[in-house]
Design a protein around this nucleic acid. Structure first.
Lengths: 218, 218
DNA sequence: ATGCCTTAGATTGTATACATAGAGTGGTGG
DNA sequence: CCACCACTCTATGTATACAATCTAAGGCAT
């Protein structure tokens, strides 16, 4: 059965999306046979998909025992945010000269919409699109994929944090988004990088105020 | 056949070491059956190992076609070094308070030995051990494993660069190592981080002077 | 001679079958 | 009542067999 070439990649992509969309939670067990059946495939490509997601940090495999959706301690999440703080301004600088008028306009739109967004899921999508857009379409670079992985690994905890309160409540976030777009419009890479660094840093500190997000359930 | 649980992990570790030791070069093809036979296993765990190394950036897989040892363009290598420049000082800061007298002494030893080392392979080992040691034994942190992957992906090009000239020729490297150890001895995290950043940056610039290292052979 | 199509070989991709280690269960002795 | 052990069952790990795809060589027409 199965179409052409790449069941493993397809399963990995689906499982990755499912985890990022919150259909799984950290600590949830991932059973090979169940996944295989769900995709109409055997366990062989499922195992390959799990190895891929393991290397991305989304899944944790224990030999002869099983696979679980990765859980982060507060310290690990903090580390990931510190990495983002160092790396994302670097990526942004690469893309400042490449930003066109249409992209800048969409960034404006997204910033405006987020400022009054109530729904967590929509906010998550918009925020992610906002930053991804600012990093350009250059998905090929090793830097871009590293940043994407940092976002993926912390996605669940961002969602859990946002659920604690109204996403539009924190005015600082929206102010920073505005400042960022403005710097980008002027093509000021230094200032844009600085604002972004502050933005990520503040997010990290806000997250640190809510250790209950990292409480081990089940 | 095969012992207990973990042929895939063992094969991945072996292949990773082989690539890092230079037994393979970027662009070399990796055949599944050949690897399987070499390890007395079937192709199933081999494929899992390849997926793992693919996610680490050491191997490039093309569907229905094959696997090759990853090759970096000069631009990609430059990106990886810029990431190192941002991230490694961060990791170092984590470990400054944890450094004991024995470790500092070994760092001194390594710095001394490297300053007069002629052999490329020995220099590579010592340099890597020097920095890994300064980052402490904390292999568990997500930051530590990220840094390790950055080193792994650029290892081949470091070797190729060193082969162009006497490793002990560049006095700047050894001076920076000395300065680093001295800062660490004083427990001055800020200065140590700054020196390390400069160290990585200078290495990147030196590497940029030798584009022939990235010339696509075969 | 050159370019394209056909075909044979090799290599990858996946399903199935079997081997093996873990987790839980019931029973027994203390 | 609790700790411990044998056993069963479930899920994982791997080898084998088969299907699909890519590559390269050779023939044919232009």
């Amino acid at each position: 059965m199965s179409g052409h070439g790449g069941a493993a990649a397809r399963i990995a992509a689906d499982l990755r999306d499912a985890i990022l969309h919150g259909e799984y939670e950290p600590g949830d067990r991932v059973r090979q046979e169940q996944l295989a059946e769900h995709h109409g495939a055997s366990r062989v490509p499922v195992r390959e998909a799990l190895r891929m997601l393991e290397a991305e940090g989304l899944v944790t495999l224990v030999a002869n025992t099983g696979a679980w959706v990765s859980r982060l301690s507060q310290e690990e999440c903090d580390e990931l945010y510190r990495m983002r703080e160092q790396i994302e301004p670097l990526l942004l600088r690469y893309n400042v000269p490449l930003l066109g008028a249409e992209v800048l306009d969409e960034l404006d739109e997204l910033a405006t919409r987020m400022a009054s967004e109530q729904e967590v899921e929509q906010f998550l999508r918009d925020d992610r699109r906002f930053h991804a857009l600012s990093y350009g379409a250059a998905r090929t670079s090793v830097l871009g994929s590293t940043v994407e992985q940092l976002w993926n690994r912390t996605q669940h905890y961002r969602r859990a944090f946002l659920r604690l309160s109204d996403p539009s409540a924190d005015r600082g976030i929206h102010l920073e988004h505005r400042l960022l777009v403005e710097s980008l419009r002027r093509g000021d890479a230094d200032e844009a990088g600085a604002v972004l660094g502050i933005h990520v840093r503040r997010t990290r500190l806000e997250l640190a105020k809510h250790p209950e997000v990292f409480a081990a359930a089940r």
